[in-house]
């Protein structure tokens, strides 16, 4: 293999091996940026679709269970989508951890005084909110997909002998502790996506003054938060009940 030497700022010589163009791209600073933007965008789009799905709780048991049944029966789609989401998530996290490590190394010594002026706290805590959201997703899967958190609510069937996802949802969010966990999870997600939604166009170099998506980032994230928390909140306040909606 052909190796080349670089002298870094402090005179340390490092050897860099020639890689194929794709590996080189993926390992470059801007390549990593693009990977973060694309995987982040796809995960964000999933989050939007997922939220719209849950809004069907307002349509009552039959509507929601039909939707759940529809998703569950599409196993040829379900498993590839799940696998794809998992890959996106893993790539997003691994690249992010690499970036955090590089960024820490690039600023080893802190300022005695440092005043950030335009960066948001949400932007500067992406690594923390990201990992917290990851933990939340793990909890969410254990809760509603695997069914270990509230097993008593997990195996009920509705009048048409379908899996009763509606009841599971209602029983789940009648519990204030569960509601609290999801509320916290959604706050973290909204903070994370607030910066993400503001960033991806710039990262891909597609930001255009005619489409100020970057400035709308926090608003988009807030919309997602409201959409996600509306059905659980309706359950908690008794608007969506075991015996119906309203």
């Amino acid at each position: 293999m052909f190796a080349r030497d670089h002298a870094t700022a402090r005179g340390i010589r490092v050897t860099e091996f020639h890689m194929t163009w794709l590996v080189r791209y993926a390992r470059s600073s801007i390549g990593a940026k693009h990977i973060m933007a694309v995987t982040g965008l796809l995960l964000f789009l999933f989050a939007v679709v997922h939220m719209i799905g849950h809004l069907q709780m307002f349509g009552g048991r039959d509507m929601y269970n039909t939707y759940a049944h529809f998703l569950q029966s599409l196993w040829e789609v379900k498993w590839p989508v799940r696998a794809g989401l998992l890959v996106l998530l893993i790539v997003h996290i691994i690249v992010a951890l690499g970036l955090v490590a590089k960024n820490r190394a690039a600023r080893p010594e802190r300022y005695a005084k440092f005043k950030p002026v335009v960066s948001s706290a949400a932007g500067r805590t992406m690594a923390f909110t990201g990992l917290a959201v990851f933990a939340f997703i793990a909890f969410h899967i254990i809760h509603f997909t695997v069914g270990w958190v509230q097993p008593e609510a997990f195996h009920t069937l509705d009048a048409e002998k379908r899996w009763d996802a509606y009841s599971m949802f209602v029983i789940g969010f009648q519990n204030p502790a569960i509601y609290g966990v999801y509320f916290a999870g959604m706050v973290l997600l909204a903070l994370h996506l607030g910066h993400g939604a503001a960033s991806w166009l710039q990262s891909l170099g597609l930001r255009h003054p005619k489409y100020p998506v970057d400035r709308l980032g926090p608003l988009i994230a807030f919309g997602l938060f409201v959409g996600y928390m509306a059905p659980p909140t309706a359950v908690l306040v008794g608007l969506i009940r075991m015996n119906g909606v309203g």
Partner: peptide, 9 residues
């Protein structure tokens, strides 16, 4: 050169 990565701050 060992610069960090942009996070769009």
């Amino acid at each position: 050169a060992g610069f960090g990565n942009c996070s769009n701050h």
